[in-house]
């Protein structure tokens, strides 16, 4: 047994970004000797072809309609079937609503283990080593697996997707397997998103508890709109009800890695950093020169945001 099985995901018929990132990770491991890459997806055969172009050597498409929008327990037997067909001894999936349940479920069903929210992977000395944050981001752990298969859920944006290459070839096979749904989905309510999705925005302006009240976010939204970016928040600000939880950045919120992250009145607790430390350029606006966010930033202004942010908006408008 050798090889890697990637559990790809699609939203409304289109591959989710995590699918390409997982294949990027799998190709890296394949290059290190972990074997060939098989991708599993629920949906149509066309998706299987796309997965080949993104780096899979083979694709297994589960055409059973019961998998669409289903919970992990419905996926479990399908993934077990794909695992058997592929002969893989490594399984990678996303740290998504599906993967965060499916990873542990599969691990317990097969008597093995899973590394959750994995940020790095390597194949060395014949085994998979997964790196993940623990203790709220204060520490990193590297773990390996006593039993097979080794399973890892991979955090968004930890790996780069490869550019699709339509000339790549590989077999696409279909299966028709789905588990029983003991838990029934009654409905889904999408959070209303205004403007650009936080995870995709090239610029993110986030606010924290130091804003003092919800009105501070109006100012941040104006700055974000000017920079064609999105507005985020710390958990402290969300817990206070100042901003919707869907905009929370951090360990228990969204993971963002924009080109520019402007942190306004956010101290930079490790749990917040866990969601934005991958940002290319960080700007901190904070009263406290010793704040962790200031240390992590490329540029920082030490002053009251109430004076700085309106002035910054004016200056940026002047620059045009």
């Amino acid at each position: 047994m050798a090889g890697i099985l990637v559990i790809a995901e699609a939203n409304e018929g289109a591959l989710a970004p995590i699918s390409g990132e997982l294949l990027g990770a799998a190709r890296k491991l394949a290059g290190e000797g972990a074997g060939s890459v098989t991708a599993f997806i629920a949906g149509s055969e066309a998706l299987g072809k796309e997965l080949i172009a993104l780096g899979a050597d083979a694709a297994i498409v589960d055409t059973n309609p019961a998998l669409q929008g289903a919970l992990a327990e419905v996926y479990l037997p399908a993934v077990q079937a794909a695992l058997q067909q592929s002969g893989a001894d490594i399984v990678l999936m996303g740290q998504t609503a599906l993967g965060r349940d499916l990873g542990p479920m599969l691990a317990f069903a097969l008597g093995t283990a899973v590394s959750m929210e994995t940020v790095d992977l390597k194949y060395a000395g014949g085994k998979l080593i997964a790196t993940r944050a623990c203790y709220g981001g204060n520490a990193r752990a590297e773990v390996s697996f006593k039993n097979a298969p080794a399973i890892a859920t991979v955090k968004a944006k930890s790996f780069d997707a490869l550019a699709p290459d339509a000339s790549r070839s590989g077999s696409v096979s279909t299966i028709d397997v789905a588990g029983e749904a003991r838990v029934k989905v009654l409905g889904v309510q999408k959070a209303e998103s205004t403007g650009i999705r936080l995870e995709d925005a090239p610029v993110v302006v986030s606010g924290g508890r130091g804003l003092g009240d919800p009105s501070g976010f109006k100012m941040l939204e104006e700055l974000a709109a000017l920079l064609k970016g999105a507005t985020g928040a710390s958990r402290a600000a969300c817990d206070l009800g100042w901003y919707p939880p869907s905009q929370q950045v951090g360990l228990t919120g969204k993971v963002v890695s924009p080109n520019l992250y402007i942190a306004v009145a956010i101290s930079g607790a490790s749990q917040h950093m866990a969601g934005m430390a991958g940002s290319k350029n960080i700007v901190a606006i904070n009263k406290d020169p010793d704040a962790n966010m200031v240390k992590a930033a490329k540029y920082a202004i030490i002053d009251d945001y109430k004076k700085v942010v309106p002035a910054l908006i004016e200056e940026i408008k002047k620059l045009g």
């Binding site: 691990a107 008597g111 093995t112 283990a113 899973v114 590394s115 080593i129 623990c134 204060n138 520490a139 990193r140 752990a141 590297e142 773990v143 390996s144 697996f145 006593k146 039993n147 901190a284 020169p289 200031v294 240390k295 992590a296 930033a297 490329k298 540029y299 920082a300 202004i301 030490i302 002053d303 009251d304 004076k307 700085v308 002035a311």
Partner: peptide
């Protein structure tokens, strides 16, 4: 079932440039 290979505190270096100015507007 999960073998702990290593546990460490990641190193973070600070290269921050503090933007100077006499007033918030100048900063």
């Amino acid at each position: 079932a999960l073998v702990l290979e290593a546990l460490y505190v990641p190193k973070v270096e600070s290269n921050v440039e503090i933007i100077e100015g006499d007033t918030p507007e100048e900063k």
